[in-house]
Design a protein around this nucleic acid. Structure first.
Lengths: 179, 179
DNA sequence: TATTGTTATACTCTATAACTATA
DNA sequence: TATAGTTATAGAGTATAACAATA
């Protein structure tokens, strides 16, 4: 088994402040920043990267407002979905998928394990764990998914279904090496 | 004049580690994460927000690799461009544009001022400053712009000019309240 | 009283490096 | 030796709240 964690450390999980709750997908968007009147953005308006960044900030603000009550961030939500869709995945592999260091997933998994949403199960190799959602984890994840879909629909409400697909397709072609 | 800052505090600016330099717009993309083979992404593939987030992470990685040598981040670059295009802007207004707290811009401006790229000039109101780029700041900004354009072109190289415009237009429609 | 810039403080996220227990 | 998970630590980034100077 991997190095045993002390109970003291396991106990010191931080509770985060709950954000104000949002009501429905028709509720007003916070629209964090986006575009300030009377400001010249110059070259920024021509950059793909700035457009993505600006969108990401606005989306993040709405995500936080929508799921803060559940103590869920985009990062945490993604972790749950990945584990849910790839049962038995290891922490190292999860770190790779999330694009963060291995050390970073420890806290994430600790947190979900303590909340009873996720389990570290034995793998053949005693150095590693197989990650699985618990029944409760699956149940909670379904709840989160509904909230995230509501959030995502609200954020994308000015786009048709076709445009949303188009947008995802265009985004997916970024940072691709032609080889 | 606003509260005077101590020289001690002014001196303790942090130097950041320079990232490895990149060569040209045809160089290989780091493509940070994007999409890991053999992983099921489930609902994440249907979400606008996740597509934006994933793109943003990849772009950020390339930006850092491209401009890390100059100690420039997207945030810092945006600040310079905004000040350059809106000479005389106040710190509070800049904070509003950047979507961060007023306290956050202090360090950013301190840093640029110490580097001689930017000046805090007197405004009519003695509580506030007018921010201006120095000659050196304008010169450096032009250099950064070239590097950022190269980076942005590399990141968008799989998209035609028309597709890039389309992408920016679609992103611009996100998080808009129909009212 | 209100506003601008500033400071102090704290919290989150992340990376690096060293450590342990296994392989 | 190499790998998986863990820990310690440090550095950005950000927010909140309080403060001084000024309006």
């Amino acid at each position: 088994m991997p190095k045993q964690k002390t109970d003291i450390l396991k106990a010191q999980t931080k509770t985060r402040a709950a954000a104000p709750k949002r009501q429905s997908s028709t509720a007003q968007l916070p629209t964090f920043n986006a575009r300030i009147e009377g400001i010249e953005y110059g070259i920024l308006d021509e950059l793909t990267g700035y457009a993505v960044r600006r969108a990401q900030l606005s989306i993040y603000a709405d995500f936080s407002a929508s799921l803060g009550v559940y103590d869920i961030t985009p990062q945490r939500f993604s972790s749950l979905v990945i584990v849910g869709n790839n049962p038995g995945i290891s922490q190292t592999r999860l770190a790779e998928v999330m694009g963060i260091a291995r050390s970073g997933v420890v806290a994430i998994i600790d947190n979900f394990e303590q909340a009873g949403l996720l389990e570290r199960q034995d793998s053949g190799d005693r150095r590693s764990y197989n990650l699985h959602l618990t029944k409760e984890g699956q149940k909670q994840l379904e709840k989160y998914k509904l909230a995230v879909k509501e959030h995502d629909d609200r954020v994308s409400q000015q786009l048709s279904v076709k445009e949303r697909q188009q947008l995802r397709a265009l985004l997916g072609k970024l940072c691709i090496d032609p080889k």
